[in-house]
Design a protein around this nucleic acid. Structure first.
Lengths: 304, 304
DNA sequence: GTGAAAGCGCTAACAT
DNA sequence: ATGTTAGCGCTTTCAC
């Protein structure tokens, strides 16, 4: 009818608008999408939104995408490669204009074969997919130095599965480098992100028996750090006197619920901002940097 | 070509499948949606996913919707009625098959006028929209009794804006009833969900000066309870000796990051499950109960 | 300046 | 049993 061409009497305009309201008309976005081959939809694939870090990240992404006129289709991969693949296929099938991925799974070929604009957060995908990450190496370095400078000598670093290609591995590299430079022996211990809390607790208890002389822990995320803290307290350790703990992530929720935890803060807002602008550039067809490293900060609690 | 009709030689089938793979073919869901007038999309409108309770709730909803064959379009309303309205319109325009709403805003007419299947969580919308809620009255009762039985007399109950029609108001009702039955004077204090942490902190500090004799607090959510705890500690209170605190929500994250907080646990999984099955019934056109109240549990920490 | 028609990719009904 | 066509609701192009 009228939407685009600019003539028409006011009376007609009003009439049509009234009709639109009374008939409760909403333009059918699906039909427009089909014709335009543009959905203004962005897919988000992350492990789960039930986590302080990913929850905040997704919230920040969603906010910025909304402001840029995109709606968000969400897929929680739950660390399940199959679910991730299903999501990916369905999102592609849904003709999303782009994808922001932070899931922690192994390689999935669809990311490579489809020529959909994709941005990865804290995950290496392939050569032409841009990655946004916090300065993991610096974070690992700061954390380890924090522990060493406050007197810890037997420091363990927890981390996810090593076969996963993620920039987060650089945290452990930095830890090992710093330990070596102080002539200390590095020890790493696996606490898989996908385990449930019970399994994590067991693994952490096992860590305490395996390393009885342990006096410092660099946990690769704050939830793990909290579990370590609780286990330590239960075993009679005093924090930070007997055991010093540094976490990683420093999301909003952690800083309110457990401000006592010293942790490395990932600049979530900035990462989200960069991810969105990078994705939009890609959608437009512009070139973007392939790697963007965002500086971290230290949150000083009382656990170190 | 072939997808539906069941004859064809195996060779042809293989050939087509190969072609599909080599051409990287994915059926266009948008076209199918246009024809079928069914998108297999469900919209979720919640304040924000950057919150332990809503994060977990959205994750649980998403999981169950995925299993039922639906994808999820998410909208974080951020307690902004305008944003909620925009989302609602866009989701309707996107032809979602249904909506699950837990946003905390005032009435929005579109919910009534469109005849889209809608389910509300912890929010009263209108007469024919089914509501899923935890047993807020029982939760308020349990919380208040917990505080009274451990010796508190001057108990304050924090809550959101009163003009909001939400079943959560029943927590305060129960609090008032229990207080009255013990001949204690009820006091309520507003801590708006939409305030940022800084503003909340200020409000809570003001509460401490307003009620110097306060020895018990029933906070309407765990984040607020944590802020109360911190403020109390800063002011020299000893928890639970000088001040007893009970929260509300008891989500996964809170129970890991702050297990010491005694709180009323909302059965998030069950609520999500009910919301999804109810929505699917509505989509099918079946009748559903208009109100489903799910029992709460007590998480015993050390704050009471 | 305004009306008519084609086509986005799919599915279902209709011919062959 | 297989090929053909109409149409979902929109936008754009092309006539008038």
């Amino acid at each position: 009818m009228l939407n685009n061409r600019g003539y028409l009497s006011e009376k007609t305009i009003k009439k049509v608008h009234d009709a639109m309201e009374s008939l409760n008309y909403q333009p059918n976005a699906v039909a427009r999408q089909l014709y335009k081959k543009e959905t203004k939809l962005v897919g988000l694939i992350f492990p789960t939104v039930d986590n302080p870090f990913f929850g905040q990240l997704v919230a920040e992404l969603e906010k910025r995408l909304f402001d840029a006129g995109f709606k968000v289709l969400i897929g929680n991969s739950m660390n399940d490669p199959e679910k991730e693949e299903t999501y990916l296929k369905e999102l592609i099938s849904n003709q999303v204009d782009g994808l922001i991925v932070g899931a922690q799974n192994k390689d999935i070929s669809e990311y490579h074969t489809s020529n959909l604009p994709v941005v990865a957060i804290d995950r290496v995908m392939n050569e032409d997919i841009p990655v946004i990450a916090s300065d993991n190496y610096m974070g690992g370095k700061l954390a380890t130095e924090l522990l060493i400078n406050s007197g810890a000598k037997h420091i363990i670093s927890t981390h996810g599965p090593i076969n996963l290609k993620t920039p987060a591995n650089r945290r452990v590299e930095a830890y090992a480098d710093v330990m070596a430079s102080y002539n200390l022996v590095p020890h790493t211990y696996i606490v898989d992100f996908s385990w449930d809390f019970e399994k994590k607790r067991q693994a952490i208890e096992a860590m305490f028996s395996k390393y009885p002389e342990m006096d410092g822990i660099f946990a690769t995320n704050d939830m793990d750090a909290a579990l370590v803290w609780q286990t330590a307290t239960k075993l009679g350790y005093n924090i930070p006197d007997d055991l010093k703990i540094v976490g990683y992530d420093g999301s909003n929720i952690t800083r309110v619920l457990l401000p006592e935890l010293t942790t490395i803060v990932q600049p979530v807002e900035l990462m989200a901002e960069r991810a969105v602008t990078t994705l939009i550039s890609r959608i437009k067809g512009d070139d973007t940097p392939l790697e963007q490293i965002i500086p971290v900060k230290v949150w000083r609690g009382e656990s170190v």
